[in-house]
């Protein structure tokens, strides 16, 4: 990947991060940690990878993404807003009673949201359904699902993993956001779902492990996923919860906590400084 493109993606991701922080700060609630850990991957998907049209969110044959870890809606909303699905000003209304931006993704009211999610484990199954529909209808769109690492403790995730492999859904690509933390602590201490690679391979998936903040690795993984035939792909992305905000990084306490005004100002300054010329 060209350096100029990487630079541009980093700039875009910084804008998305600022939107995440603005949404969560405005709402005085929400989930910044896991939103910041998936920002680079979502930015790549929506700005480079997926066949989509923000002016026509229901475009026939579009690629689809299901945010299975629905609590990180701020990342999805910010990437959609920055991509042009709706006004970025709306991010300020996140979680307000008269806003379309519900606390968790709502496909009925938010342009670009493909599936209503929030209850963990359900989104990957819905993504399987979309991928299966494409197979039934002979369409070539691709379906993506973003899962949390803690989410993989839900049994339904493994039901869906069986399903995806059984029906050879090679038009499906999931990403596991392996930031290592969940609400109550470190996932390997709490209820260890690893090793992901061996388990997913044993479940019949094409497994790719990457650094989820490295755009070249992200790009290579999605490219490789497209060329894999006969089985679905799982990208295991090692990430940092709270990525880009020093005091949020790798802290479980920032899973579902909004910054105060002072913290918000510092976070914004850090994100801006990270992409300053």
């Amino acid at each position: 990947m060209e350096q100029a493109k990487i630079k541009a993606l980093k700039q875009t991701a910084a804008q998305v991060r600022l939107g995440v922080l603005e949404a969560v700060f405005s709402a005085s609630s929400g989930h910044p940690g896991g939103s910041l850990s998936i920002t680079d991957i979502l930015t790549y998907l929506y700005f480079e990878e997926m066949n989509i049209d923000p002016a026509n969110p229901k475009m026939e044959g579009r690629d689809r993404l299901v945010l299975s870890k629905g609590h990180t809606a701020p990342a999805l909303y910010s990437v959609l807003a920055n991509r042009g699905y709706f006004d970025v000003e709306l991010l300020k209304t996140f979680r307000q009673v008269d806003s379309i931006l519900q606390g968790h993704p709502d496909m009925k009211h938010i342009p670009g949201v493909e599936m209503t999610t929030g209850s963990l484990g359900l989104g990957i199954s819905a993504a399987c359904g979309m991928a299966l529909a494409a197979k039934i209808d002979g369409k070539d769109y691709r379906t993506y699902a973003m899962l949390g690492d803690g989410e993989t403790q839900e049994g339904q995730v493994w039901e869906a993993l069986m399903f995806g492999a059984h029906y050879k859904l090679d038009n499906l690509c999931i990403v596991i956001d392996w930031n290592g933390l969940q609400i109550d602590g470190r996932i390997t201490d709490l209820m260890n779902p690893t090793p992901y690679d061996k388990k997913l391979e044993a479940f019949g998936w094409n497994v790719i492990s990457i650094d989820g903040h490295d755009f070249e690795q992200i790009a290579a993984a999605f490219d490789a996923a497209k060329t894999c035939k006969g089985k679905p792909t799982a990208i295991i992305a090692t990430t940092t919860k709270g990525k880009g905000v020093s005091f949020m990084e790798d802290q479980a306490s920032w899973h579902g906590t909004a910054p105060n005004a002072e913290q918000y100002a510092q976070a914004v300054a850090e994100i801006k400084a990270s992409v300053a010329e």
Partner: peptide, 19 residues
């Protein structure tokens, strides 16, 4: 298979894609 929860959410995905 014997996985009713997954089946219901798969059905939701199928419906979201027009089936």
């Amino acid at each position: 298979g014997i996985a009713e929860g997954n089946m219901m959410s798969v059905a939701a995905g199928l419906a979201a894609a027009g089936k």
